[in-house]
Each structure stands twice: as C-alpha cells, then as structure tokens.
Design a protein around this nucleic acid. Sequence first.
DNA 1: GATGAATGAGGCTTCATTCAT
DNA 2: GATGAATGAAGCCTCATTCAT
Lengths: 217, 217, 217, 217
Amino acid sequence: MTAHSVADKAAGSSDKRERILAAAERVFARHGFFAAKVSEIAKDAGVADGTIYLYFKNKDDLLISLFEARMQVVNATLAAAIEGLPPLAQLHALIRTYLRLIHDEPAAAEVLTIELRQSNKFMKEYENTSFADFLRMLGGVVARGQEQGEMDASVPAPIAARMIFGALDELALAWVLGRAPAISGTTPGARPKKFDIVRAADWVVALVTTGLAIKEK
Amino acid sequence: MTAHSVADKAAGSSDKRERILAAAERVFARHGFFAAKVSEIAKDAGVADGTIYLYFKNKDDLLISLFEARMQVVNATLAAAIEGLPPLAQLHALIRTYLRLIHDEPAAAEVLTIELRQSNKFMKEYENTSFADFLRMLGGVVARGQEQGEMDASVPAPIAARMIFGALDELALAWVLGRAPAISGTTPGARPKKFDIVRAADWVVALVTTGLAIKEK
Amino acid sequence: MTAHSVADKAAGSSDKRERILAAAERVFARHGFFAAKVSEIAKDAGVADGTIYLYFKNKDDLLISLFEARMQVVNATLAAAIEGLPPLAQLHALIRTYLRLIHDEPAAAEVLTIELRQSNKFMKEYENTSFADFLRMLGGVVARGQEQGEMDASVPAPIAARMIFGALDELALAWVLGRAPAISGTTPGARPKKFDIVRAADWVVALVTTGLAIKEK
Amino acid sequence: MTAHSVADKAAGSSDKRERILAAAERVFARHGFFAAKVSEIAKDAGVADGTIYLYFKNKDDLLISLFEARMQVVNATLAAAIEGLPPLAQLHALIRTYLRLIHDEPAAAEVLTIELRQSNKFMKEYENTSFADFLRMLGGVVARGQEQGEMDASVPAPIAARMIFGALDELALAWVLGRAPAISGTTPGARPKKFDIVRAADWVVALVTTGLAIKEK
DNA sequence: GATGAATGAGGCTTCATTCAT
DNA sequence: GATGAATGAAGCCTCATTCAT
C-alpha cells in the first residue's frame, strides 16, 4: 500500500462511477430512458448489473445523477465564460457557450433536452437543482442588464430566462433530432441538412436582443 | 331504423373513440405515458380494456392519435385567428391564441408539451405531421413578414419559428408544472405561484418583436 | 313461397353450415387449430362472427364437427370401394382409396392428420366416433381375412388395423408437409420433391401384405 | 473454491435446465402444449417464472428443446442397440427398443407422439433435426438390408422407414391414450384395457417383415 | 466491493364468446 | 336468423432489483 493507494482507490471507484454514468448517457441517448435496460448500461460500462446498485439507488437515481453531473459541467463552463463581462455581453456568451456545449456533447445534449422530460416523476417530484441554478444564472444576467439600463425591463427577468432557454433548447432539440428545417432555397424534398448549431448562436442573439420587428426610423 | 339512426351509430362510434382519447389525455397527464396503464384509461373511458384495441392499434398509437387530434384543433384555431392580418399582427395573434389554448386545455397542454417527448420512438420514428404543420404556419408568417419588410430577414424564418415555439413551449411547460419562477419580490421560499399564462403573451411578443436590448437613441 | 322453399331454406341453411365448415377446413389447414381465429373463419365463410355460434357450440365443436363430416365421407367412400370383394382385395382397395382421398383433398387431409391431434382435449375427452368406425372397418377386413385363411392370424386384427392406419397416416403427413424423403439417387441437398401419394399405395400394399423380409426359397 | 465447485456450478446450472425440461414434459403431457401455462411449469420445476427465460427463448423453444433432448436419448439408445447386428436383426432391435422406451417414459412418449404435432409452426417451420436423424437411421437399416439381399427392394427405403415409424407411432399413441382396441373377446362396453406395448413389438416385427398375406406354398 | 443468476410483480394484448339490434 | 361491436378473462414475457457467493 503506497501513499497514493487511497487516491488510486478513490480514482478507481469514481472512475467506475463515471464509467457507469457515461454508459448510461450513451444508452439513454440510444433508446430513451424507459426503453433503456439497466443490464445494457452495465454491459456498456463493463460492470455487472448489480454493481450499478452500489453506486446508484435505482434507475431513476441514475438519470437524475447523470443530469446533475452534466448540468454542473454546463453551469461551471457558463459561469467561467461570462465572468467579468457586462450583462449584454454575458447574454451573448451564455448563448454561444451553451450551443457549443450542445455541439461538442451530443449524447449529453440528448439526455438533457429529451430524456429528462420523460417522466412527470422527474419533472414533478424531483427538485431540479442544477437546472434551477442554470435558470437562476440566466435570469441574473437579465436582471442585472435591466438594472444597469442595458436591457428592457418590461419582461420579468425569470420569465425572460425561461423564454431564452426555450429558444435554445428547441434549437438543440431540432439539431439533435437531425430534423432541422430546410434553411433557405434548398431543393425541395431534399433531406433536411443539419444546420450549424454553433453558428445558430448569432440567430438566437439577434432574436433575443433586437427582436424581429424592423425598427421604425 | 329511423333517419338519424345512422348518424347515431356514427356518433356513438366516434363518441366512444373520443371518450377514449379524452380518458387517455387525463390519464397520460396524471401519470405520464409510460406509467399510464391501458386498463386505467379503459376504466376512465367507461369501456372494456379490449374496446380500446378496436379503435387504436396499441398504446403507442393511442398517444400519437391523441397528439394528432389535439394538434389539429390547435392548428385550426390558430389558422382562424390569423386570417387576413398583416404578418406582425399574425405573429401576435399566434402567440396569444396559442397560450390561451394552453390555458384552456391544461391536460392537452401537458400531453403536447411533455408526454410526446417521452420516447425516442415518437421523436425519431414518428413523422410528426401536425406539429410540422404548426411549425410551417409559424415559419410562413415570419417569411411573409420578412418579404413584406415588416420583419428582420437576418434570421432564417424556419429557425425563427423554432425559437419562437421554444419560448412558448417552455413557458407552457413552466406553467403546467406549476413551477413558475418567482416573478418579483415574493417571499423567498414561498411556493412559486402560477403566473398568468394568458398575460404572459405580452412578454413573448415583446421578446420576439423588439428584443431585450435597449435601442440606442 | 313455392313448394320447394322449405327445401331451399334447408339448403340455404345447411349451405351456410357447410360454408363455415369449408372455411374452417381452409383456415385450420392454414394456421393450425389453435392459431386459427374464429373471426378469420367467419370472414372466409362470408358470415358474421356470431353466426358461427348459431351452427356450432364453440370452436372445439367446429373442429370436431369438421372431423366427423369429413371422416364420414371417407368412411362412406371406403365402404363403397370394398363392397363385395374378398378380404385381401378389400385391404388393397382401402389403402388405394384412402390415399387417393388424401390426394384429392389436401386441406381435409391436413386437418385429419395433424389438427385433430392438436389437443389432448380431443384425443382424450372426445369419443372419436367416425374414426372408430374407420378403424373398425379396417379391423373387420383383417379379421375376415384371418377367418378365411387369407391372412396371418398371429397379429390381433385391431392391432393390425392400427399399424396399417399408422403407416398410411405417416405417409399422408409426410406428403402434406412436403417433406417427403428423397426417394432415390436424387442430387444430395436437393429440395425433397413431393412423392406421388397415389402411387405410394403400392408400397403400402407391399409392406403390409408380403412384408420386407425376403422369403427363403 | 474447491476443486469441484466449478463442476458443481455447471451441474447446478444444467440441473436447473433439466429440471425445467422435466417439468415441461410433465405439464405438456398433462394439459397439452397450448393449454400448458408457463407459470405451472415454473412451479413444477421449483423455479420462478422468469427463470425459464434464462434457459429458453420462449414457450415454443421450450417444446422444441424438450423434443430435441428426448429424441437425442432415443437416437443414442437405438444406435447402441443395433450396433454390430445384421440389417434384419437391426430392424427387430429398433422396433423392440423403441417400444420399450415408450413404455419406460410415457410422459416423454406423449410429448413425442402428440404434442409436437400440435402446431403447424413446429411441423412446418422448425427443422426437426433429431427426428430426421431417427428416420435416417431407420432408413439406413432398410437400405442396407436391401443392399445385402435381406430385404425386399421394391419399397424405397426412406418410404419404408416412414411407414414403419407410422406403425410404431400409432401403436404408441393408442397405448398412451389408453384406448387400446379390445384385443379379444373382452366384455363389450368394458373399458379398453391397455395392451402390453412391449409385447406388441412382436406384432410390428411380424407385420413389417413377413406381412399379413399367407404365403402360398 | 463485485458478481450475475434468480426473482416475481405486473401490464399489454388477444380472441372466443355474447347479446342488443 | 344474422350481425358485429363490445366484452373481459387470462397468459406470456420483461426487466428492475436482490443477495448468496
């Protein structure tokens, strides 16, 4: 037993936990939460079925833990991205960074955007801490923008946060499902091409900052 | 056989079908699709279990049929609401009417916003005709607004439609789940009060037409 | 109402009964008794589901009635074919006629050889009258042959009847299933061709009369 | 882990599989395949319902596996019984041994003779390997007998094999169902007594070797 | 901690049969 | 007699979870 054997063990252990989470992410993305089988997650993770229950209370807990783990990374990344910026720039950064994360982690995106809505159980009974944090961060940016006169105060900040998230989430969903609307004059009947979710950030920024209406001179 | 016996029979038949759909709507809203039991739907509808299979292929078909039926009402109502208006006014009308429908039919709203996302099966395999119609209508309004110079053309119309729907859907979800963000200086820790989803239409209109950014003088 | 309207009605009625039996014969041959659906028989017969229960007590009764009806034709045909012949010639005639009937009515043959064995219910509970008649006729021929010194008396006649029927039935089964054993030097691996069930009568006659052993001179 | 723990485990596992097969044999013999309930088999085997599906794909597979397992024993026993004998003696041995097996394992006999015919599914779709082996063995004996001049070559060997099997199978069926034909002058109306299936071998031998016809001097 | 064979509750679905018309 | 929509009992099978090793 060397000095770092404890750390090794911890690493080995959390490594196994993370491997299970990663497997769950893949399997949930593949089949959806309800159709996903615990035994398939176990096989994907390279552990026995029973091992999963050493790290998670049950299948529900697995989904919630996965959601929390991924959402915390999202929140941390977003928090780092907006540090020190003025509110409007923060809003831009949030939008860009969020969509880039979606782009870089499609399996996680699928779980975050689709699977978590799968069950009233989770939406109604589970207190969605990390997602609440996310909304709070977004709402805070808007509130500060309103306080500092950079943003219109006619829309309550938490409501604005919800709507902005809705726009982002819907784009993410469309992108994940590969059913992007044909963007321009593409050949009719052509298979809808995946649009560039990263570049789409500009459109979200345009919508939520200047809106669609042409400003009267 | 009286003159209206045929109509009676037809009415009886479609009445039974509609009763099953209404029961499914309630039960899906109550438990979610996966936790919903076919036998409970049957009991709720006042028919035998087997009767459901005279009208629907299986449980999946029941959800899809329900979605289609409700969405067609939504589409018809929206189409009627925007007829003859200029694009920007159409957009306002769409937003208001949609949220009013959500308000008037919360069980349908729950199914439309939550349950249909429940399964990759539906999101990936099922061609979501009525929802596509909905998006097409919304996108058409934006496209016409852009053509007529009422709306900013920098955002592709189908993408704009997605984002607008996302904002609406997210508000609807928040309202349905009764987890509205505390709007102002309500007592912290207090149970979040349901906000007024009908009045929220003004906020959506504000966001998508004028945006959040304060216009420079 | 003419004088033969009663006969017509009777004809119409028994016609409907016979149509149901014929449909049952086809459907049982197609799917087997257990997999056969009463509603498919009804559709095949061109009557409503409920109509079947005006003519037959239940699905079991339908199979039994079908078996009895077909077996009575078999018995009548065989009885006519052996009338006035000496025992050994009667045995030949029985074998030939039986296999010719199989050949001419494959659907009936399938039901007679396969479906009736389907259930212990029928084999154990149902007193198989017509089949008993058949065996009695066959056994009678052997018994008379033994009495008249044409046939070896070392095998009890009812047992001999069973064995002869077994040989016939097995050939019929092999023929019905199209899995006839490759008869001669056919290309190995070639799909077994249906042998000629009518000509096979000679082989049955050879086996049961002279046996396989080469007679010592 | 002791030296025989692995063997124990293997024994335990195949023991459970065999226990399920034995239970299926009893339950199928009792009720017939279609009326047999998987849960009754499980109870009879002393395992949980779900355990059956660890060893067999489904109820059909259970029947097929049972048939294969029992038929392989039959084939092995028969092969051992005929080793080294001349063809005619082999034929005698096959007949005697087969009927003795029927006598010793009536439940297996019931499944082999009745239940497997239960479904067109099995007769038409399932490639009946072990039964084909059986017929091949029987046909081979006849073919060799014909080649060596011990047996009459006028009947194709595979056809002869079918007929011999048919005679055996029909006797087995009659015996299993306990509806043996009254052999001699038993009181009419008396319950048919089970004949001695083992002694019946002599009758089968007599029929298939010397035939019924009295040889002309 | 790890395993994976075993468990057994529970639901979707089928289909023979009925009965109001 | 004829219809066929409705019934509802019943069973196969799945799969999350446990626990002896």
